[in-house]
Simulated scan of single mutants.
Amino acid sequence: MDLTDLRVFRTVVEAGGVTRASQRLHRVQSNVTTRIKKLEEDLGVALFEREGKRMRLTSAGTTLVSFADEMLTLAERARDAVQEKTPHGLLRLGAMESTAAVRLPGPLTALHGRYPDLNVELRTGASRPLIQQVLSGELDAALVAGAVSDPRLETLPTFHERLVIVANASHPPIARAADVKTRAILAFRAGCHYRQRIEDWFQRDGVPIERIVEVASYHAILGCAAAGMGVALTPQSVLDAYTERAQLSVHELDPEMRDVLTLLVWRKDVSRVKIMALADLLGPSTVAAEVRLEPVAEESRAS
């Protein structure tokens, strides 16, 4: 079996068809189809049942998936073992907005100083979309929140975050969701782990959320909270860097809701050299560079 054929096979399975697989692999559809047929001929079995443009895995195809993952992972590890160990080229990294703003400046500066031939392309987003981008190969690795159980991914704990509820400075104490005066939450788009956690907090107390105001940055979230537009769930590390903290009230959560671990995730079957270069500089003891979040402009607070 050819490793390239196995990669094409696995991509077709993950993408759900030849058309999307060809886009991910940057190959013409006929080449992808030829590779699948060649693999089937080599194995002497049909891997897909074809119904028009639809393709479904046969029992043999289902069996091959796990073996393909293991073989491709082993091949990448063998490549890492024999190739030069100095990281270079491009590392496509995803991170949550809070992690990128507060946790990464120090490690990325150190990474550049240690490996000047390694360039980092940083993309921010919510945890769920970032994980999907790692799985599809759009990102080499990502820093995400919450548990990750996909067997195709490796994970490494990096940062421990303590979450707090923030509201405007005059808001009375908040011990549970029922204490929130304005039943609006300020959050990123769906797919954000912190947004899901505050939604679960309201639901656990049986308190309906009147509306969700979606914003694009923590600058805007904290500014809108200060203006009394709603409440938000934010890492303490982000709040500590905010220069207008006096305009906010901070409310503690119970341990079940407040503690969250940030994980570095990457595919098991990709080269680890560049990822491990970054991983060596991450962790609970990492001291991030001093970052101050400036107050949001008035027009952002009103948005």
Results as ranks from 00 to 15, higher is better:
V180W: 01
L281V: 07
R123W: 05
G89N: 11
E161W: 12
S217L: 15
Y115V: 05
G106D: 15
Y218W: 13
I221M: 11
V231L: 13
A225L: 14
H112T: 15
N31W: 10
I36P: 13
T243R: 02
I165Y: 02
M229T: 06
D280C: 12
V287K: 14
R27K: 00
V215R: 02
G94L: 03
P129M: 08
Q203D: 05
S22L: 00
L57E: 02
D140L: 03
S271L: 08
H251Y: 09
Q23M: 01
N119S: 08
W266L: 03
T11W: 05
R103T: 02
G283R: 09
I174C: 14
P157W: 00
R7D: 00
R128T: 09
V8A: 06
E154T: 12
V144D: 00
A184R: 12
E214P: 07
H171A: 09
L111I: 13
M229N: 08
A177E: 08
L104F: 00
Q236P: 02
V18Y: 04
L281R: 04
L6S: 02
T4N: 03
A187S: 14
A277D: 06
I131N: 03
T155M: 11
V148H: 06
A110M: 10
Q29L: 08
T182G: 13
L6R: 01
R183T: 11
L72E: 04
I36N: 11
L3I: 04
A246R: 02
V45I: 01
L186M: 14
P87I: 11
G61S: 01
V296A: 13
H160D: 05
S271F: 07
M276F: 15
R24Y: 04
A147N: 00
